[in-house]
Simulated assay, not measured.
Amino acid sequence: MPRYEFRCRACGDNFEVNRPMAAAGAPATCPQGHADTVKLLSAVSVTGRGAAPAAGGGGCCGGACGC
């Protein structure tokens, strides 16, 4: 189940809530009982053993134009 991070505007605490994706936008009450909260954006990092990165020279067009 996804975990969403919220910040309480009343007390300033950050807290997390586990809930289904269908309820991602639902309001959350902070552990102190305050209802004035905002959902925070979280950075997600996914790692794995995927394909190797493509070889290239970099630059503006991948190095093919010699720039």
Rank of each mutant, 00 (worst) to 15 (best):
M1N: 02
M1R: 02
M1W: 00
M1T: 04
M1H: 04
P2H: 04
P2G: 02
P2S: 02
R3N: 01
R3Y: 00
R3D: 01
E5M: 03
E5C: 01
E5I: 01
E5D: 03
R7M: 08
C8H: 01
R9L: 14
R9K: 13
R9N: 13
R9P: 00
A10Y: 00
C11R: 00
C11F: 00
C11K: 02
D13C: 12
D13W: 00
N14V: 04
N14R: 14
F15H: 03
E16S: 15
E16F: 02
V17K: 03
N18G: 01
N18H: 07
R19I: 05
R19E: 05
M21P: 01
M21G: 04
M21F: 08
M21H: 06
A22R: 11
A23E: 15
G25N: 15
A26E: 15
A26S: 13
P27N: 05
P27H: 05
C30A: 11
C30Q: 04
P31W: 08
P31E: 12
P31A: 10
Q32D: 15
Q32I: 00
G33P: 06
G33D: 07
H34V: 09
A35E: 13
A35D: 14
A35G: 06
D36I: 06
V38S: 12
V38F: 09
L41W: 07
L41M: 13
S42C: 10
S42E: 15
S42L: 14
A43Q: 11
A43H: 09
S45A: 12
S45V: 13
V46G: 02
T47C: 06
R49T: 13
R49K: 13
R49C: 04
R49L: 10
G50L: 06
G50V: 05
A51P: 01
A51S: 12
A52E: 11
A55F: 03
G56M: 04
G58M: 09
G58Q: 09
G58W: 10
G59H: 09
G59D: 08
C60G: 15
C60V: 15
G62F: 09
G62H: 12
G63N: 07
G63A: 09
C65G: 06
C67Q: 11
